[in-house]
Design a binder for these strands. Structure first.
Lengths: 116, 116
DNA sequence: CGCCTCCTGCAACCTTTGGTTGCGCATGAG
DNA sequence: CTCATGCGCAACCAAAGGTTGCAGGAGGCG
């Protein structure tokens, strides 16, 4: 018990997916299979350079991998690492959910004792 | 299908729980029931002022509520709003998970056709 | 009451990070 | 060969997380 998920979190991974722009980039890469800084920037409200920086962050976090292809550099999601990230999300969510439920149970118990 | 969960996300809520210090604060508040800026700062690696700022952010996001009690101000978690945040976490996680599974299915299908 | 202590709030400042513009360079297309 | 397209690097800006320092209000106690 007492898996304090929020303390086990890989902060690099979490902060990588914590940014809204990076989340949308991951979404796009998942949907389209792959993409370049330029192609992603076209469907995002930021410049190509901003996207490139984010790709660097995601790359260092291991969430994407880029391979040079001629004059462009195509990035694609690393499935395993994204799966790890998803696991951390649900881990934190489950921990909080469990604590909320516990609090609710206690509150109900108190109500019961007061009604006696 | 194609529910692009990452776009439905309430960015204020998400960015509130995106910060590691704020996540640990929520954890502490959940475990201990309530707390003040000073009491939280004692078990966190940051100063009281930093904690106070974070409490401000969490308050504006609706995740905590603070009530003055004499010379101190006690904060406690808003269960409903945290439940909403948990829902968003699992929503994004589920969306990515679904896409990962879909990719895996497609990959397997391709393998099968190639084996034929 | 008067003093002292503790907790809070406000302000100035530093550093990191997400974002921009501008430029130079390489590589594929005509 | 020439041109344009895509990339990387550098300078710069604003917002956010964090720190120190200081002034003020509520409680405890002689």
């Amino acid at each position: 018990m007492s898996a304090p998920a929020a303390e086990d979190v890989d902060d690099d991974l979490w902060s990588a997916i914590g940014d809204p722009t990076r989340r949308r980039m991951l979404d796009l890469l998942l949907v389209e299979g792959d993409g370049t800084a330029t192609s992603l920037a076209q469907r995002l409200p930021v410049t190509r350079q901003a996207v490139a920086k984010h790709l660097g962050v995601l790359d260092r976090a291991g969430l994407v991998r880029g391979t040079p292809a001629g004059r462009e550099k195509r990035y694609r999601v690393d499935d395993a690492q994204l799966a790890r990230a998803v696991a951390q999300l649900s881990s934190v969510g489950a921990a909080w959910d469990a604590r909320l439920r516990r609090i609710k149970r206690i509150a109900e118990a108190i109500q019961r004792t007061q009604q006696d």
